[in-house]
Design a protein around this nucleic acid. Structure first.
Lengths: 156, 156
DNA sequence: TCTTGCTCCTACAGTTACTATAGCATGTAT
DNA sequence: ATACATGCTATAGTAACTGTAGGAGCAAGA
């Protein structure tokens, strides 16, 4: 029942790269994998879930530190409500802001596609739409994230 | 009327760092700034807009290459429809997938906050909710992004 | 049995997108 | 005149990967 597989299979099933998985183990967001007799890392379905979660979150601009917090919520079900509440509320706001900005981008893209009737496009308002002081004000950017790198995004 | 200011002011007004702006000039996503008599870079409102756009996009996980494409749509209004269409459609899908995943995250966060009534949380379903095979299947992750680093997110 | 080929291992170098720091010049405030 | 902030260039460091070198393990075919 509890199917086991190696790192290459895990990489395939989560659409990530083998060195990335080893890197996640090294920095502690993935657990230290149990080794088979031949020293190879063995994984199960739970590892797919965890890795999927990490990859989705990274693709959306969450840092590995953010992700560590979120994973902690899941890893330690005996957190107090205050802790959960703080992390979850923080992230909820973060998520909602991202959705708001993405929705503006979405509308602008749709407008651009819609406007394309075979002639040349006379004016592209995407920057104005997104960087406009008024809009920026409305979205009320507040807090800040940390460093990333080389996201192979699952979200396209 | 056309107010001019230096790099520190631009950094303040866009909530970015001075070296980041110089870096963006170096790699060509910001234009080569016109220098004052004393060799200092001078900026105007248009630079704020462009930089805001770049920062917002980065915070949402778009790469500088993605952003270059988007900026090109705005910089060269004489693109053919085919070009605009291709870039815009590509990005539209990308954006919509990000929104779908963020919406799942949002609901899960709300559920967690809602469940918190002063006792201990018995079970956190966030990872299950987000990494579940069924859900991942439903979201149908397809294409991929590229590298990032050190995003100071405007979106919180 | 040998060997071709695939996947695994470790370890380290390279990439992207910044961020910080050093060392010096310029401008403003006292 | 001197202090101090800000600008400049140049270079090094960081985060989050990605690629590659060099070697081991195992399965299937010649």
């Amino acid at each position: 029942m509890t199917e086991e597989f190696m790192i290459g299979e895990l990489a395939k099933r989560t659409d990530s790269k083998v060195p990335t998985i080893r890197y996640y183990e090294q920095i502690g967001v993935m657990p230290t994998a149990i080794r088979a007799h031949n020293n190879r890392r063995m994984y199960r379905n739970s590892h797919i879930k965890r890795l999927m979660f990490i990859r989705h979150s990274r693709a959306l601009g969450f840092t590995l530190d953010d992700i560590r917090d979120l994973l902690a919520l899941s890893d330690q079900p005996n957190h107090t409500c205050a802790e959960v509440d703080k992390i979850a509320k923080n992230n909820l706001e973060n998520i909602q802001k991202k959705i708001r900005v993405l929705s503006i981008m979405e509308k602008e893209m749709q407008r651009m596609i819609f406007q394309c009737h075979g002639e040349k496009v006379s004016e592209c308002l995407i920057i104005t739409a997104l960087a406009d002081h008024a809009i920026a004000e409305k979205i009320k950017m507040t807090t800040s994230e940390k460093n990333d790198a080389t996201i192979t995004n699952h979200l396209g």
